[in-house]
Design a binder for these strands. Structure first.
Lengths: 119, 119
DNA sequence: GTCACCTGTCAGTGTTGACTAACAGGGTGC
DNA sequence: GCACCCTGTTAGTCAACACTGACAGGTGAC
């Protein structure tokens, strides 16, 4: 999420979306950037949970993808960063364990040299 | 600042520095990354005001650069993003005006160095 | 039919970022 | 002298990102 916010263009997208939901082409026109570029940014932001997109049909039958802002309010401090890191560590360990479980019955790849350098 | 935080490696640096001040070589060793790479990250973070570095002489006379964390506590929401954007807009406008002034008065630049935008 | 909208995706390009190996220099201690 | 710490900077590689132009497809209005 921080990576998604760490780009001026994307912050400006947030500012535009704060005024209300817009469809992609209109937003690209207002911001003066190309549509594919806007797509990339929106995709990133959607993955980060900052925006959501809905494909709707306008009254005259045209398909339009409307994006809108997902309100967020996060406290960003040393402690929250530490907590997030710990949570991520646990999540990765769980995922690794799940992968290990899967590969035990399925396909034996890496022998044992992929040991995580923990300290 | 968000760009500086938007990288996992740098978040891990924060975690390490949260345990206390360390000098560069030691930190690089603990994290298992090369020293120049660590330099780059630290430089970025120092520019963002997240860490500070002090070159000190250890008791045995060796020069060592100790880095330490600058505690931060920021609220990150749609409104704060909007405020930051507005502030940045104003700052850029001022800078543009100053540049214009400078070019008008020949080479009138320099006495006031990098004004930091964040408080 | 053509025009004017829209969506989605592709192959490209230039730039920035992340990263490594290797350098030069300075101290202490032997 | 050499070995072992540290700092700071360079050149260079490699992958990811930011971005553009052009494509294919859809719809309704003229």
């Amino acid at each position: 999420m921080l990576a998604a916010l760490g780009h001026p263009q994307r912050l400006r997208i947030i500012a535009r979306l704060a005024e209300g939901r817009v469809h992609v082409s209109e937003l690209a026109r207002r911001m003066g950037i190309s549509r594919p570029l806007l797509y990339m940014h929106l995709e990133r932001m959607e993955k980060a949970g900052l925006v959501t997109g809905d494909l709707e049909l306008s009254p005259d039958g045209k398909a339009m993808k409307y994006f809108q802002l997902v309100p967020f309010d996060v406290r960003l401090s040393v402690d929250t960063v530490l907590d997030a890191l710990r949570a991520d560590e646990v999540a990765q360990r769980d995922e690794a364990a799940r992968m290990d479980q899967g590969s035990r019955n399925d396909d034996r790849e890496g022998p044992d040299d992929m040991q995580e350098p923990r300290s």
